[in-house]
Design a protein around this nucleic acid. Structure first.
Length: 470
RNA sequence: GGCAGGGUAGCUCAAUGGUGGAGCAGAGUCUUCAUAAGGCUAAGGUUGUGGGUUCGAACCCCACCCCUGCUACCA
C-alpha cells in the first residue's frame, strides 16, 4: 500500500485549543481519511510543543513544575481527537523521551555537517520590564512601556545554525517543486523572503536563564531553542533516526497556519538539508479565522472555542461549518450568527430534512428495498481535495442534495403507489446512500447514520440528524 | 517605501478579451412526504476611479484611490 504521511504543526501549549487549530486539524483529518479511502496506508500526526520560555514562565507563575504544567495541556489537546472525531494515528509530545533523543541526534548531524557554531548574541534588555525585547516589540528603538529608559545591550553566547548556507538550496527547492508550498502566493512570499538573504539564527538558550528545554549534546550549559527542537517532531514521531517507518513514510505533507510559513517552509527545510534528509513533500498553508472582523483574543472576549462549537452544533456540525468556510488559503471571518445560519440552512433544512423526507416516505410505503452500500469517491470530490478545496468538495455534495430535493418535488412521491413508488424510493434511496458515502471523509458519524438508516431491513422514520436551531 | 494579493448584486464569492453568473438575504407564487422544511418565478450590478489599446474590456496597458499580507529570531 502506498504510504501517506500528513502532520499538523504542534500547537504551543500555553493556551486552550483554538478554533484556528481545530480548522487546521480537521482539514488534515479529511486528507488523512481521503487518502485512506484511496487505498493509502496513512500516518496522521499531531501533538504538543512543550518547551520554551513562555511555558517556563507560566509554570513558575502557577507555582508548579513545567512538566506538570504541560501535562495538563497535553491532555486537553489529546482530547481534541475525540472531541472532533479525528483519525489521528500519532500524537507526539516534545517532552517524550524518544523525541528528546531524536532532537539531540538531529543536532549532532547538523553539527557534524558543520552548520552549528557558537557566537555572541546581542539582546536588547529593558530594565523597566526586566525583560529582553525583540526589535518587533520596540517603538523608535525604545520599549513602548518605558520609552524614557534607554535599552541595555546584553550579550550572551549562543549556538547558531548556518541558515545562510541554504539560501540557494531552498531557492532551488522552490523552483523545482512549484507546488512545494500551497497556495502559490505563499510560495512567492517565502521565495522572495529567502531571495532577500538569510541570516543565521540562534538555536540555543543559556540553561541558567531558561532551563526548560532539551539539553544541547555535549554542552550542559545550553538548552535548544524551542523552535529547533519542536520542528524535529515531524520525523521523531516516525521513529527517526532508527526506524523503517521513517524511511517508508517520509517525506510527508505538513499543514500549518500562515504565521508558520517561514519556520515550516524555510527553516525546517534547511535543517533537514543540513541533516542530509529529504525535504518535506508539501507545505499547506492556511489562513486565520477572525470573529466579526476582529482578531480572536481573550481580551476582546470573542474567542470561539472548538468545545463551544461542538456543544452547539455537534461534532459533524462543527466539522462541516469549519470545512465549508472557504478556500483554506485565505482568512475567513465568522460569527455565531453566521454559523447558526449555515447550520440551519445546509445541515438542518437541506441534508437533515432531505434524509427525513425520504426515510419517512420509505417507512410509510413499508416496502423492502434491500439497499446496499457501495464505496466510491465522486471524481468531483477527489479533484477538489487534490487542490485542497474542501469548500468545493462540500458544495458538489450539496448540489446533489439540492437536485434530489428538486426530484422529490417533481415526482410528488406522496401521490405515487405500487411499482412507480418503489422505483422512486429505490432511486432516491440509492442516491442518498451515495451522498452519505461521499460525506464519510467530512462527517464520518453522520454518513454512517444515514447509511445504516437506509440499508436497514426496515426503514424507520429517523430522529432529526441536525435539529433546527431557533 | 519595496514586493505580493485583492476591490464584481445587500452579504459571500464565480466568471481572465466575445450578450456579467451562483448561493444566502429580501419579494411573489406553488406544494405538504419532511426538522414551519421544499419547488418555481421575477427583481437586483455604469464590475474602486480616470484614461488608453481593441470591432469588442470585469479581464490587457498607464495613472490614481482603498483593503490585506510579507519586509526574520514571538513561540
Amino acid at each position: 500500500m502506498k504510504p501517506y504521511y500528513i502532520t499538523t504543526t504542534l500547537p504551543y501549549v500555553n493556551a486552550e485549543p483554538h478554533i484556528g487549530f481545530a480548522w487546521e486539524i480537521i482539514t488534515a483529518d479529511v486528507l488523512a481519511r481521503f487518502h485512506k479511502v484511496m487505498g493509502c496506508e496513512v500516518i496522521f500526526n499531531t501533538g504538543t510543543d512543550e518547551h520554551g520560555q513562555k511555558i517556563y514562565n507560566k509554570a513558575v507563575e502557577a507555582g508548579i513544575s513545567p512538566q506538570e504544567y504541560v501535562d495538563g495541556y497535553a491532555a486537553k489537546f489529546r482530547e481534541l481527537s475525540t472531541l472532533l472525531n479525528l483519525s489521528v494515528t500519532h500524537f507526539i509530545r516534545t517532552t517524550d523521551p524518544h523525541h528528546v533523543e531524536a532532537a539531540q541526534a538531529f543536532w549532532k548531524r547538523c553539527a557534524d555537517h558543520g552548520d552549528i557554531y557558537k557566537k555572541i548574541y546581542k539582546t536588547k534588555y529593558c530594565v523597566g520590564c526586566e525583560l529582553e525585547k525583540t526589535d518587533s516589540e520596540l517603538v523608535d528603538n525604545h520599549c513602548p512601556l518605558h520609552p524614557q529608559i534607554e535599552l541595555e545591550i546584553r550579550e550572551e553566547e549562543n549556538y547558531f545554525f548556518k541558515f545562510s548556507a541554504y539560501q540557494q538550496a531552498l531557492l532551488d527547492l522552490y523552483k523545482n517543486q512549484p507546488d512545494f508550498v500551497v497556495p502559490k502566493e505563499k510560495l512567492a512570499e517565502i521565495t522572495s523572503f529567502v531571495a532577500g538573504g538569510l541570516q543565521d539564527f540562534s538555536i540555543s538558550r543559556l540553561k541558567e536563564k531558561m532551563p526548560w528545554g532539551i539539553e544541547v549534546p555535549g554542552d550542559p550549559n545550553h538548552v535548544m531553542y524551542v523552535w529547533f527542537d519542536a520542528l524535529i517532531n515531524y520525523i521523531s514521531t516516525l521513529g527517526w533516526p532508527d526506524s523503517d517507518t521513517f524511511t517508508q513514510f517520509w517525506p510527508g505533507v505538513q499543514i500549518a497556519g500562515k504565521d508558520n510559513l517561514r519556520q515550516q517552509s524555510a527553516m525546517w527545510q534547511a535543517m533537514l538539508l543540513s541533516a542530509q534528509l529529504p525535504p518535506a513533500r508539501q507545505i499547506l498553508i492556511n489562513g486565520f479565522i477572525s470573529v466579526n472582523g476582529e482578531k480572536m483574543s481573550k481580551s476582546f472576549g470573542n474567542v470561539i472555542s472548538p468545545v463551544d462549537m461542538v456543544k452547539r452544533y455537534g461534532i459533524d456540525g462543527t466539522r462541516y461549518l469549519l470545512l465549508s468556510l472557504g478556500p483554506v488559503s485565505g482568512d475567513m471571518d465568522v460569527t455565531w450568527e453566521k454559523f447558526d445560519h449555515y447550520y440551519n440552512g445546509y445541515l438542518a433544512n437541506s441534508l437533515g430534512n432531505t434524509v427525513s423526507r425520504i426515510a419517512n416516505l420509505c417507512a410509510r410505503a413499508e416496502m423492502s428495498l434491500s439497499l446496499t452500500r457501495k464505496e466510491s469517491v465522486d471524481p468531483a470530490i477527489s479533484e477538489a481535495l487534490e487542490t485542497y478545496r474542501f469548500d468545493l468538495a462540500l458544495e458538489s455534495i450539496w448540489n446533489r442534495i439540492k437536485n434530489l430535493e428538486k426530484v422529490i418535488d417533481e415526482k410528488q412521491p406522496w401521490k405515487l403507489s405500487g411499482s412507480s413508488l418503489e422505483l422512486f424510493l429505490r432511486q432516491s434511496g440509492e442516491e442518498i446512500i451515495f451522498i452519505a458515502t461521499q460525506l464519510q471523509m467530512f462527517m464520518p458519524d453522520t454518513a454512517e447514520q444515514i447509511i445504516a438508516l437506509f440499508t436497514a431491513e426496515k426503514i424507520t422514520p429517523p430522529k432529526p440528524l441536525f435539529p433546527r436551531l431557533s
